[in-house]
């Protein structure tokens, strides 16, 4: 028996519409594939050092709030082993209040090392066991829970700024440095050069931005001036990335550039959630804090002759309470009171 084909051919314009629709779908599949490929390859290297540290038993994660510890190290060719974390900053995000607090921790802050009897500068903690030690020391010293961390070295910093096409920065005062280290792609990593960065609005490359945030010589307030410049840069990056939705087009390029240059436990889902939060709240209130002298600290010397920052326990605790809540302030006070090893 012969089968009769009852299917009728669709009209031409319907077939044309189907073809256009499938073409558009295939185009966007290809477009998305590039993003997903970049993201997947970035995550494969970025999360290679996944860390879960919740050492302080009295610390409970806060609802509707996130603490991210940002770490930066001079990981140039001079260093071997675990590098110091010269930059330590806790970014506290309060989703309900729509506020962000940026708390810079002075690298020379004199503290008791966790699980050890000795005292030292807070940036030295990372020398013991790397990033887990840095997280632990911040959690224990200030009584806060670190939910996520992100670490970047010198090369990763340069690449990340270049990946977004450089950065427009408001240089708040001229920076002159007569002994800036020449340890990036240099034949003499122990050499030095001179810097002259002029005040005012400037568009900087990754290398120039690194010089701006890394220089700490010839400044009346020393390392505090440097942490101030680092917070300025972070604000400028935030403004750049979340200024418009078109900035998101650069994200795959950023992922590709940073492959292997950053360590973080931030998941793609959390990144997306945070990105959407920042895009929706472009004018979010951002406050900056540090333990600057003379109110929150003083500059001194350790018994072994190191230049150190000694916290004023009472005032520092009040500041930590203001940012992270009452319990954190109390832990901070207990930990920063009567630290030893200071030359009196």
């Amino acid at each position: 028996m012969q089968e009769i084909n009852t299917r009728q051919k669709k009209p031409f314009f319907i077939r044309l519409l189907i073809v256009i629709f499938l073409t558009v779908v295939c185009f966007f599949l290809g477009y998305s594939a590039y993003y997903l490929n970049s993201l997947q390859r970035f995550i494969a290297t970025a999360t290679s050092q996944h860390i879960t540290v919740k050492t302080a038993t009295n610390i409970t994660p806060l609802l509707n709030q996130t603490n991210i510890l940002l770490l930066g190290s001079d990981n140039d060719q001079k260093f071997t082993g675990n590098p110091l974390t010269q930059t330590m900053m806790v970014v506290h995000i309060d989703y309900a209040k729509k506020e962000i607090d940026m708390f810079s921790i002075p690298r020379d802050l004199w503290i008791r090392m966790p699980d050890r009897k000795n005292y030292g500068k807070i940036d030295q903690a990372a020398e013991y066991e790397g990033i887990p030690s840095a997280i632990k020391v911040v959690e224990q010293t200030f009584g806060i829970s670190i939910d996520h961390y992100a670490w970047v070295g010198l090369y990763g910093f340069i690449k990340s700024i270049n990946a977004i096409g450089g950065i427009n920065l408001q240089v708040v005062h001229p920076v002159l440095d007569n002994s800036y280290p020449t340890d990036i792609n240099s034949s003499n990593p122990y050499g030095y050069q001179r810097l002259d960065i002029q005040a005012g609005m400037q568009h900087m490359t990754g290398g120039e931005a690194l010089q701006y945030v890394r220089s700490r010589h010839e400044d009346l307030i020393g390392d505090f001036g440097r942490t101030q410049r680092q917070r300025e840069l972070l604000l400028a990056i935030k403004d750049t990335l979340f200024h418009s939705k078109s900035s998101l087009l650069k994200i795959p390029n950023i992922f590709n550039s940073l492959r292997g240059q950053i360590k973080t436990d931030v998941s793609p889902a959390f990144s997306l959630q945070l990105g959407i939060f920042l895009l929706r709240n472009k004018n979010i209130k951002i406050k900056q804090f540090t333990l600057s002298p003379p109110i929150y600290s003083s500059i001194g010397n350790s018994i072994d002759g190191q230049s150190i920052v000694v916290a004023n326990a009472s005032n520092s605790a009040k500041l930590i309470t203001q940012i992270f809540g009452k319990n954190a302030g109390q832990v901070t006070f207990n930990n920063l009171l009567n630290v030893q090893g200071i030359a009196r």
Binding site: T23, C26, F27, G30, Y31, S32, Y34, Y35, L249, P252
Partner: peptide, 11 residues
Amino acid sequence: IPFIVGFSVAY
């Protein structure tokens, strides 16, 4: 073809 074009545009 449109898949490759989409991938290239994103790149």
